[in-house]
């Protein structure tokens, strides 16, 4: 790592002020599990001059329910989210997604805010200076996405505006299916918007000096069934090749409400609105589930190395729906 100034912010406002002062040349740090890697690999187009520690801000680590809304402070650790009994009982999808992140060490250090704001895993973007070769890609202000013409087996099958790296956060996928919102604060004040909108083309949808402060999750109907499924190489630790989050409410076998979000396949969490519309009002059985799987990938256009994600996605969507129907959990 190179040299930088380090500040322990006492309040959110102080952190914002410092970010403003450094005008895009500072980064905030929470658990540091991703940022330290980014700094060690020296992948940012400009090495940050300052690092602003958020962990010294009081009262950003909490899990509470207020007026039918679950509120999680952005500095809450993933392990605490995963093990919270409130979340396990009512928002199990989130609990499962958090538990599938990284390793116990990563979950003990990593925060939910940091997970949502982590940098993409694209191996061209991440190629480290200490390895010799750096790719000045589109995401870094260059003109080319090297993955498009390179090895893109872990990249988007639903395109992307230039950059085809996928949203790396498991938590974002689960939160998308839960219709969760993210609350931020910046120099212009506070914003609240859907988690899925945090991701946009080749960047995070955050202002330079904007900080994620809270995650808000509306309470799902008690009868809703929530399933998280994450396909990866190893069962122990790996980013998702494909992940699916589903929330399904049935009434006598008929789908009353459903929300499905896909991860690992697109630059943002991908809600399957068309599939949801098809399922709503239909019986959930192996035929409709299979059709849903097919619909999920109907618009996919794979790159040179990632067509294999299509059958995987198709199969997982089908399974997740049937698992939700049968109240089965992950096997």
């Amino acid at each position: 790592m190179k040299r930088f100034e380090h500040f322990n912010a006492k309040t959110i406002d102080e952190a914002i002020l410092l970010l403003e002062k450094y005008d895009g040349e500072a980064k905030v740090i929470a658990g540091g599990t991703d940022l330290i890697r980014v700094l060690k690999d020296d992948i940012l187009p400009k090495y940050p001059k300052a690092i602003i520690n958020l962990k010294t801000i009081a009262n950003l680590e909490y899990i509470k329910e207020e007026n039918g809304v679950l509120k999680i402070g952005s500095l809450t650790r993933l392990s605490d989210v995963a093990s919270s009994s409130l979340i396990k009982t009512k928002y199990n999808l989130l609990s499962e997604a958090c538990r599938s992140v990284g390793t116990p060490q990563i979950r003990n250090m990593g925060t939910i805010g940091g997970n949502l704001c982590q940098d993409v895993q694209c191996w061209y973007y991440r190629a480290s200076k200490s390895l010799g070769k750096v790719f000045h890609c589109l995401r870094k202000g260059g003109n080319v996405c090297y993955a498009v013409s390179g090895d893109n087996r872990f990249h988007s099958i639903f395109g992307g505006k230039g950059c085809v790296a996928v949203c790396p956060s498991d938590v974002a996928i689960a939160l998308t299916a839960l219709d969760a919102l993210v609350k931020t604060k910046g120099p212009l004040g506070e914003r609240v918007f859907p988690v899925s909108e945090l991701y946009k083309d080749a960047a995070l949808n955050l202002g330079r000096s904007e900080i994620v402060t809270e995650i808000q999750v509306p309470e799902p109907p008690p009868e809703a069934r929530q399933i998280w499924i994450k396909f990866r190489l190893r069962n122990s630790l790996d980013f998702a090749i494909v992940s699916v989050a589903v929330m399904l409410t049935l009434e006598e076998g008929v789908c009353k409400d459903v929300r499905i979000a896909l991860g690992g396949v697109a630059p943002t969490p991908k809600r399957l609105k068309e599939v949801e519309d098809f399922l709503k009002g239909n019986y959930i059985n192996s035929e409709t589930a299979e059709k849903a799987g097919k619909m999920a990938v109907a618009k996919a256009f794979p790159l040179s190395h990632n067509a294999y994600k299509i059958p995987i996605t198709e199969s997982l969507v089908k399974r997740v729906i049937l698992m939700a129907k049968d109240h089965r959990t992950l096997t």
Binding site: Q121, L131, N235
Partner: peptide
């Protein structure tokens, strides 16, 4: 990366070796 000869999966995250859970 076939165009440059760069090893792409050069870390414990990207080069998956078995862990005790596998």
């Amino acid at each position: 990366d076939e165009k440059t000869g760069t090893p792409l999966n050069a870390s414990f995250i990207e080069y998956p070796i078995p862990t005790a859970l596998d």
